[in-house]
Design a binder for these strands. Structure first.
Ligand code: SF4
Ligand code: SF4
Lengths: 145, 145
DNA sequence: CTTTAATCAGACAATAAAATCCGATTATAA
DNA sequence: TTATAATCGGATTTTATTGTCTGATTAAAG
């Protein structure tokens, strides 16, 4: 079971955070991302390709090619990646899987879930990538070991 | 993508809520649950079978057989169903899929996610099935239409 | 200009989740 | 006692997700 996001999305988020943390360097090759984050090389490559189409990532071909953010880190939020990969369905659908969700026909968890959904959205929206950089570096430092 | 729970788990939760709402009647046959909740008959049957093994559901074989709660509705909480079907991994794992989660090596969303996780747990734990009955009946009433 | 090292693109394979099918079994009711 | 209607249990199919392979393409560097 996934926690909330698909593996694709989790990997995408991790990779984007890594790119933001390496903002100084030109481009990062997929092999490096694969190695550090423990993601199959071809898989993360594929995911970053799709994020390139979405305009979030810049990719450079040929020797000394790789990936980088397409925009300034203060212009990107985690929600952008989620939207591009998993879409917004988790913010519209019911935790219990009931159809026709609306305040008129609330399910037994309506209130609690509505609040959680909003907070989850804020969690992904409040900060931009540059604001997350410090914390990302700390976490990634421990992964290397 | 699933919101949080697998389809199996969503269906299980819905069915359990339905059984609790029909607490008066003896047993409910899988065909009825299937029809009302729009779940493949054989699928919900299988799920309720597994919940029977877990001791949450009582099943009666033969003609006029069906399913019912194995315990009093005030002894069952939604978390019990989640635990039985999806397990507790969502309450231990990282939203971002990072390994080795611990407060010492927090990921960038540590604080927010930790809070959400707790609230999600409470949402499934605070109320027992009998306390949810009223709201369930209201929701199911609208499904029938 | 040629070699090389990388992405790109898209087909392909493996695994997991969701749904279906069916024969065996069981218990009720006629 | 017999026919019936339901679950049980397991095999099977289908579909979605995850992961892998490979050849073409691209751009830098010698
Ligand atoms: S209103 Fe109720 S049914 Fe709809 S998503 Fe919220 S909790 Fe689920
Ligand atoms: S501590 Fe950080 S890494 Fe671990 S689950 Fe919480 S948010 Fe994720």
């Amino acid at each position: 079971m996934t926690v909330i996001f698909s593996k694709k999305c989790e990997y995408g988020l991790q990779a984007i955070l890594y790119l933001a943390a390496n903002d100084n360097s030109d481009v990062v090759k997929s092999e490096e991302i694969s190695h550090i984050l423990n993601i199959p090389k071809e898989f993360i490559s594929k995911i970053l390709q799709s994020l390139t189409e979405s305009g979030l990532v810049y990719s450079k071909k040929g020797k000394s090619g790789g990936f980088a953010l397409a925009k300034a880190p203060n212009k990107i939020r985690l929600i952008d990646i989620v939207t591009a990969i998993d879409g917004m369905s988790m913010f519209n659908n019911c935790v219990l899987g009931f159809p026709h969700c609306s305040p008129d026909h609330p399910c037994p968890l309506h209130e609690q879930w509505g609040e959680l959904r909003t907070k989850a959205y804020n969690m992904l929206t409040d900060e931009t990538l540059d604001q997350l950089k410090e914390k990302t570096l700390k976490k990634i430092g421990h992964l290397k070991n």
